[in-house]
Design a protein around this nucleic acid. Structure first.
Lengths: 187, 187
DNA sequence: CTAGAATGCAAGCGTTCACTTGCAACCAGT
DNA sequence: ACTGGTTGCAAGTGAACGCTTGCATTCTAG
């Protein structure tokens, strides 16, 4: 057939396969099948499995850069945007890819570069929160720690939901989550 | 030598190896080496890799049951106990084992039984929170969702720290975390 | 129309993995 | 001292995986 292979589609297939099977479980055969191409072509175009995965994750960052989260002065809106950008409401994979990279990819030295994507995102979010702290809107505290406090519930919620479908958790309500982050849970 | 093999030590070695290498990376050879025993003995005593892992996790639950978290009427203390019991301050592995099971072990059907450990813990914590909601101390909301809101920051913080040592995050302050959970982050 | 590049296909290579087998060494209880 | 169960050791089995090679097929550019 010699059809033209679309890198972007391949990257999507890689990320999908990663989320479903993890890194070790994402065999090159599986990835190739999901991408609708021959396994050999995969090696010819991308070199190795680790290189391909690194490219797919790097491409994800490229997509992040084109819809950046910024400081606007509206705390609730900005925090909601931060949560959304990493909880999967917008990008299909973002919310689950983050824990995947954090919890699993760390173990494969050849993938250390992929760590930079969540790393940079967190620093970006931390900067926004620091600015609101300077404005006197948000309580003092290490900005990175604040980011984990804001994102943690959404991330763990996603993990739990995908891990335990029969737990029947209510869907994540982002504005409510931001409200609880700001105002607490005391009655 | 024919030394007597201590199951508990083997389980510890299994959990340690799991945390360091994940399930796929925890080869039977590595586990045996960590446990200071022969790989063959491992198969003879525990049958298979998946059975051994299941036993190690089940044994962890057994240990949980012997220092349970309970409702005492002191919100802050109880919430802190919940966070501590899963952030690794008390049990060496608890805080990191939770995301490991959630994010990785899910993918191996032969390990589905291990999921029951975090599942039951969460339901236990949810019950305590529900009781404080009935007391009018904590805001309304799905208890399980509240548990993820409380534990999420600690879990993600742990993941981030172990994934990115050069990020230099401040150590987790549990009472402060509980305070922010209750009172929010608004200045 | 032709040439070169991209892709598919079948086969295979070397390695690692979970797991097995056969046998020797050891220890505890009687 | 003997015996039976536990452990260690060396070797090996079959399967899966990452990756390569050789060759045929198809698309595209000039």
């Amino acid at each position: 057939m010699a059809k033209q292979i679309n890198d972007e589609e391949v990257y999507e297939a890689v990320l999908f396969t990663l989320l479903e099977n993890g890194y070790a479980g994402s065999t090159t055969k599986r990835i190739a099948q999901k991408a609708g191409m021959n396994e050999v072509t995969l090696f010819r175009k991308y070199g190795s499995k680790s290189e391909l995965v690194a490219m797919a994750v790097a491409h994800l960052r490229f997509k992040f850069d084109h819809s950046p989260v910024e400081y606007t002065g509206d705390v609730k809106a900005d925090l909601a945007k931060i949560v959304n950008s990493h909880s999967g409401v917008t990008a299909a994979h973002a919310g689950r890819l983050f824990p995947l990279i954090m919890a699993e990819m760390v173990r494969y030295p050849e993938l250390r570069e992929t760590m930079r994507v969540p790393h940079e995102q967190i620093k970006l979010f931390g900067g926004i929160i620091a600015r609101y702290q300077a404005d006197g809107v948000i309580r003092a505290g290490d900005p990175v720690l604040m980011v984990t406090t804001l994102l943690g519930p959404a991330i763990v919620n996603n993990m739990l939901r995908s891990a335990n479908p029969e737990l029947e958790m209510p869907p994540l309500n982002v504005p409510d989550l931001v409200d609880r982050f700001l105002n607490g849970n005391l009655a």
